[in-house]
Nucleic acid binder design. Structure first.
Lengths: 152, 152
DNA sequence: TTATATGCAAAAGATTTGCAATATA
DNA sequence: TATATTGCAAATCTTTTGCATATAA
C-alpha cells in the first residue's frame, strides 16, 4: 500500500488526516521492512512536522495498530517497536537483532497447532510467532566486532 | 524437578539459598503450569516469608531466568509474567487468557523456519512461539458472561 | 462550526539502581 | 569472617491521562 491508500484507510475509518498523522504514516512507510522504536519514530517524524508530540505518536500508533496498518512487537524488556504491515494476508516476521530489518515468512503452522490445542481442550484465539537472528550485513559487522575483541 | 533439585541447581550455580529464594522457588513450584505476575508472586511469597521485598523478587527472577529455571512471558502491555520451566527439552506453551494456565506443546517448526531464514540469508538465533486461547473452564465462564450480557 | 485531535504537564506503572545493613556458607 | 544478598528509598523509563487549545472536515 502506498501513502495515499494508507491515509485513505485512516479517513475511511473515521479519522481525520492531520499533519501529524501524515508525517507518522510517512515515516512508517519510509521504514518499511524494519521495526522502529517510538522515540526513533518521533525523531524522524519531527523532521517532517517538527511540532509533533510524543503523546500524539503513542495515540496514533494505537489507532494504526487498531486498524491493522501497523504491527507492534514487544521486546524482552517490555519496550514496544512498530512496523508497517506489508501484507494483507496472515504472516510472521524474522527480525534482525542487529538492525531491526524484518523479513516476511508466509508459512504458519497455526492449523496444526490449533488441533494440538483442541486435543488439550483449549480454543486458540491468538498466536505469536517471532523469529530473531542476524542478517548478512549484521553478521559481518558482528564478525568484525569479534575481531576487535580479540585484538584488545 | 522437585523443590530440592531446584534449590540444588541454584547452589550449583554459585548462588546462596536464602529464605527469600526458597520461598520464591516454592511459590513458583506451587504455581506450576500457570503464569504469574511479579506482584502476585510477591503476594504469595510473603505468606511463606513475609519480609520478602519486591526488589528481591525481581532480582531473583532474573537469576532464575538466567539459569533457565523459569520462563518469562511479556504481555502486549509490556508487563512480565513468569512460570517455572517444566521440561528440560525444548518446547512452547499455550496460555489460557482467562486463568493463566499453561499447557506444553512439544512440537516446534524451528528446523523448517531456520531453513526459511537461511534462504533469506538470515541466521536464526532465537524464536518465540506463544499460543493463547481459552481453556475449557474459562470458556464456560465466558459463555456465562455472554449470557449475562444478553440479559442486561 | 463542531467534533476530533493535539500539546503540555503531570501521573501512573513496572522495573532498576545505589548503598548501607544483613545473612549465608 | 568474607562475600553475596537483601531492603529501602529514590531514580528511571516507557506509556497514559486530564484538560485546555488548536485544527480538519
Amino acid at each position: 500500500m502506498g501513502l495515499d491508500q494508507l491515509l485513505k484507510k485512516l479517513k475511511n475509518n473515521g479519522y481525520k488526516v492531520t499533519q501529524q498523522r501524515k508525517a507518522i504514516v510517512q515515516i512508517l512507510v519510509l521504514n518499511k521492512g524494519k521495526i522502529i522504536s517510538v522515540e526513533e519514530l518521533l525523531k524522524q517524524v519531527k523532521k517532517i512536522y517538527s511540532k509533533t508530540n510524543l503523546t500524539t505518536v503513542y495515540r496514533n500508533l494505537e489507532i494504526l495498530e487498531h486498524i491493522h496498518l501497523v504491527h507492534k512487537v514487544m521486546n524482552e524488556e517490555g519496550k514496544a517497536y512498530y512496523h508497517i504491515n506489508e501484507l494483507d494476508s496472515h504472516h510472521h516476521h524474522i527480525i534482525c537483532k542487529g538492525c531491526g530489518k524484518t523479513e516476511v515468512v508466509e508459512y504458519c503452522p497455526i492449523d496444526y497447532l490449533s488441533q494440538v490445542a483442541k486435543d488439550k481442550k483449549i480454543r486458540l484465539t491468538e498466536h505469536k510467532i517471532e523469529l530473531y537472528g542476524y542478517c548478512e550485513e549484521c553478521e559481518k559487522l558482528n564478525g568484525l566486532k569479534e575481531e576487535d575483541d580479540k585484538i584488545h
